[in-house]
Amino acid sequence: MKRILLILIGIALLLQPALVRAAAQTPSGACLQAVNKELSREQRIYRTMLFGFTKAADAPLGDRRYDKEGNAWIKMRKNSWRSQTKGFGGATWSDAQMDLMVERDFMAATPVRRGIFETKKALTSELIPPLLQSFRAFRCRVEAVCKAVSLSIPQSGSTEGKILKVETPGCMDFAMSPVEACMLGAEKDADGTFAHKGDEAVARTYCTHVGQQLLERESDVLKLAVSYDAAYRSLLQFAGHFDLFLEEFRTSISTPIRQAVSLLGQLQQIPCFISQCDE
């Protein structure tokens, strides 16, 4: 009896992921996936602001990058990037190709940059303004993505030539193309309402919900990173001062000391003719 119960519970647990898979079939599921993709891209780009982004040739083995469509590529060998996304199964990209195809901030000329935390010869206090600015930009982007999604939902048809003007409070205006997977407009019922209210509800609420969580998490991570950075730079500063001291004084003090040392050894053997030295 117990065993059957366990089995049943086990089956019940097993079935849970199946639910998610089932959701992948629904339209809102595809939109959710698209939202995930966009948000993760924004988060990755934000992280490159903080920590920098190197050229593909300088990346270590095992590094993963995403191309403009959001597909994941992994560097298995030198100069060889592979992906198992459908359609790229057999393809190998070289470093140059990867540099060309890697996802990037659409406002930046090149994806390769030095991270804010990589700045040398700066105190952490000086890094705070750029860090905050990056975070604000990130927040704007996330909100823009969500706005774009909600603007795309009533749309239908192809995305050719369509440009949305996304305005979010406190940020500059973005011109973005609609999110294809979230164009649920085609699913409209005959009466003009959406066939699947559920899908629409999900699609509308999901992005803001996830976006909020993402921003919270990233702000906590940023706090942690800044405190670590502050501690490390203070240590470096002290070590730097001490190295300076050692360098400046090394020759002028250690040379006489070394000479004095060899002198000391000889002093005890200098002839001494007073009776005290007979001790």
Binding site: P60, G62, I74, G89
Partner: peptide, 26 residues
């Protein structure tokens, strides 16, 4: 080497979803 899951081990995640595991921070 082709970045597929070796031996067809039936992981729940796809190969691409496993790539982040191998990322070592710089």
């Amino acid at each position: 080497p082709a970045a597929e899951i070796r031996g067809n081990i039936p992981y729940e995640e796809s190969a691409t979803e496993l790539y982040p595991v191998f990322d070592v921070p710089r």
